[in-house]
Design a protein around this nucleic acid. Structure first.
Length: 710
RNA sequence: GGCGCGGUAGCUCAGGUGGUUAGAGCGCAGGAUUCAUAAUCCUGAGGUCGGGGGUUCGGGUCCCCCCCACGCUACCA
């Protein structure tokens, strides 16, 4: 494949429902930011797109819960996202939002196009409709009595009391959460994308890179886990997926289409199109044409995402793009895995996270320090881990001791020996090689080493191997330290000043190269370093390429005679106290999470209701693991007067051999139900603690089985 | 249960198509050095490459089985 003419790079749209944490950064934003900054530095035509994902039922439900409007919620998070990204240096060309008019129009146009081409399959089903509110009710907007446990507040998709997965029509006495009225069943039509029909070409595209016999990407360049995940879905057989929902918050299905009233686009149809509408807005703002970026075969489209989004970006969105017909498909989807925090999964709901907006506030001016650690531990091939101790170590050992110290040494010596003026050199004077101790090297040979080092950084970035690229960057700095160490200018200055000039000139060239090469990773440091060197700020317009061109000719990047500024420290150490405070913050979270939360007592029932239950003491006499089920055990329960077979979801906590002989309480008159092909005749009472662990509710030891409990 | 990515030095991780004594950074030990934010440089110790079989002259690398962690999915009466 040829070098693309232009690049369109996207980062996953964060959902406007909670703040950004370090996992987001490490997953989809830093990698993309490094990539696009590098491309810009190489003089490439690149547009980097992001935006807030502001639709979907979760936002409406949250608004309802907090007594506010969806609009207020999305505004709050959109502002927070924009501010946070800007402060941590994610260099979007356009950070947009899906609530904008242009986005609604763009996604509706997409829908129209697919509808017109007959790509959709229409399917009509019966769903609940609220006649007062005049709208169909999403599963979560219907509550009623659970058919399984008789809980009166079960949702249409799930009963939170017994955990059953439900469908709204399962509910007894359903009522609308909007009006409280009884909803009526009404037919509704939805538009399905027949993914099953696209399966063949999707498979060929993913596995070989061929679309309509044209090579569009190299599958070997895709990550293993991305290919594996795609193949897993393809092998499982793709199902038609509804592209519309009966909701009141989202993009309207184009109203001229029959039956569109009250219908919204499915968020996973609407959100990725957000990349396109944001590109349109960028083009309007900058007087450009958006179309080549999405429709020209010479454009490389790259989606940076976390592993949870693989199926949408590698199968569903490409299917939508191809069905429309005018669009290119992504050349790569370099999904990252997840980043854990101090040994545990990051959890927004448990507040187990390092929030980026808090970091930029508490560590103002230390944005690059977090970026550095995130990149160094980026979960490129497998899950990785952030620890505050590790953060301190990488800062103190690598940023301070290696790179900042090297730069400081060069700047201090240049000021001391030459009053800050880059020394004129005589190239006949050789230096001790920075890479082979004891051997000598010419000025030009050392420039070549620097050139190779820079190329190595760039090559790794283009391969999406950002950790390796960062290591390559640090190697340049390490070689700088070696150059000084092997040549000892502080000793030779008195005896061989001409040799020292060559060494120090090289030192300055390396520092100047670092000011460009660190840019994708550490943009703020790049600015600071340019200031120390008294060089113009980087605009990310081909500077890296220009530098390579110069070095390839074995010429200096900074000419002799250039005046640099006084030294100042680029990075400073982070103390144990600062780290301890952050760890204490996490420990406080942990302590707060440990506090026992009691569930609210349910609605009062009458004695009659209770007496409907027939509870009996029993004893487990046999137990075996159910095949093809992780959580299920098949138990035989002795009730004295009869034996029952009960299937129970306790396999994660109890081994079959451990529960034999266990005395239990059984709901003996629960309607039987088939589970994995086995009829379960009753339900064993279990108590669940705050960790979700289960324990038996038992009668006294050696109690007689079959007795009633009341 | 099915499918998928992983399991390599104390820690974090590299190791296309099988080939001599398995690598890096941090940490640790010893030495050199003082221009620099006690920073830097050199040397060294440390691994039965998750476990067990197999193919091969030769396996971290290929095949089979098992174990562990994570993700997707089914499943908690």
């Amino acid at each position: 494949m040829n070098e693309p003419k232009r690049y369109l790079v996207t980062s996953a749209l964060p959902y406007a429902n909670g703040p950004l944490h370090i996992g987001h950064l490490a997953g989809a934003y830093l990698s993309a930011d490094i990539f696009v900054r590098y491309l810009r530095l190489m003089g490439k035509d690149v547009v980097y797109i992001g935006g807030s994902d502001e639709h979907g039922a979760a936002i409406t439900i949250r608004a309802k819960k907090e007594g506010t409007t969806p609009r207020a919620i999305i505004d709050k998070y959109h502002e927070l996202f924009e501010d946070t990204f800007q402060k941590i240096g994610i260099s979007f060309d356009k950070y947009h939002r899906t609530s904008e008019q242009i986005h609604h129009e763009t996604s509706q146009d997409f829908f129209r196009a697919l509808h017109k081409k007959g790509e959709f399959v229409e399917q009509t089903t019966e769903q609940y409709y609220d006649e007062d509110s005049k709208q169909f009710l999403a599963d979560r907007y219907i509550i009623g009595t659970c058919p399984k446990c008789n809980h009166t507040e079960a949702y249409g998709d799930q009963c939170e009391n017994c955990g059953s997965t439900l469908s709204p029509t399962d509910l007894i006495e359903p009522r609308s959460t909007l009006s409280g009225n009884k909803p009526v069943l009404k037919t509704t039509t939805h538009w399905y994308l027949p993914l099953d029909k696209y399966e063949a070409w999707l498979r060929e595209w993913v596995e070989t890179g061929l679309v309509d016999s044209e090579k569009t990407h190299d599958p070997k360049a895709w990550k293993n886990h991305v290919l594996g995940q795609c193949k897993s879905w393809l092998d499982g057989g793709l199902q038609p997926r509804s592209m519309t929902r009966d909701l009141d918050w989202g993009v309207d299905v184009p109203q001229e289409i029959e039956g569109a009233e009250g219908k919204k686009l499915y968020v996973w149809m609407d959100a990725p199109i957000g990349y396109i509408s944001a590109t349109k807005q960028w083009a309007l703002d900058n007087d450009k044409d958006w179309k080549p970026y999405w429709q020209d075969k010479d454009t490389a489209l790259i989606h940076f995402i976390g592993k949870d989004n693989i199926v949408f970006h590698c199968l569903i969105f490409p299917a939508i793009l191809k069905a429309e017909g005018n669009y290119i498909l992504p050349v790569n989807v370099p999904a990252n895995q997840f980043m854990n925090l101090e040994g545990r999964k990051i959890s927004t709901s448990k507040n187990w996270a390092v929030w980026v907006h808090e970091y930029v506030q508490e560590f103002e001016g230390r944005e690059d320090e977090l970026r550095y650690n995130m990149i160094r531990n980026m979960p490129e091939q497998r899950d990785s881990e952030f620890t505050w101790k590790g953060f301190q170590d990488t800062n103190n050992n690598e940023l301070v001791n290696n790179i900042a110290n090297f730069i400081n040494r060069v700047v201090v010596l240049t000021n001391k020996y030459y009053e800050g003026s880059v020394p004129e050199i005589d190239q006949r004077h050789l230096v001790n090689s920075s890479v082979a101790q004891g051997e000598s090297a010419s000025y030009k040979e050392e420039l070549r080493i620097l050139f190779d080092g820079l190329r190595n950084v760039g090559a790794n970035i283009k391969k999406y191997e950002f950790r390796a690229a960062l290591t390559a960057l640090m190697e340049i700095s390490s070689k700088g330290n070696q150059l000084l160490q092997f040549n000892e200018p502080w000793k030779k200055q008195k005896t061989e000043p001409e040799d020292v000039k060559v060494v120090m000139n090289l030192g300055i060239q390396i520092v100047a190269a670092l000011s460009v090469a660190c840019r994708p990773f550490l943009p703020f440091t790049s600015d600071n370093l340019r200031g120390i060197l008294n060089l113009p700020a980087i605009e990310e317009k081909g500077e890296w390429q220009a530098m390579l061109d110069t070095l390839e000719k074995e010429e200096a990047i900074i000419p002799a005679g250039h005046q640099i500024n006084k030294p100042s420290h680029l990075f400073t150490k982070i103390s144990d106290e600062v780290i301890a405070a952050q760890i204490a913050k996490l420990e406080a979270t942990e302590a707060a999470n440990k506090g026992v939360e009691y569930e609210a007592v349910k609605d009062t029932i009458q004695f009659d209701d209770f007496s409907k239950l027939d509870l009996r003491t029993g004893k487990i006499t046999a137990a075996e693991k159910m095949k093809k089920a992780k959580k299920l055990l098949k138990l035989t329960v002795d009730l004295g007067f009869e034996e029952r077979t009960v299937v129970s979801g306790i396999a994660e906590f109890f081994k079959p051999e451990d529960v034999i002989g266990q005395e239990i309480v059984l709901v003996a008159n629960l309607a039987p139900r088939k589970l994995r092909g086995v009829e379960s005749q009753g339900m064993i009472l279990m108590s669940e603690n705050e960790k979700g662990e289960l324990g038996f509710v038992s009668p006294p030891k050696d109690w007689i089985t079959g007795f009633t409990v009341r």
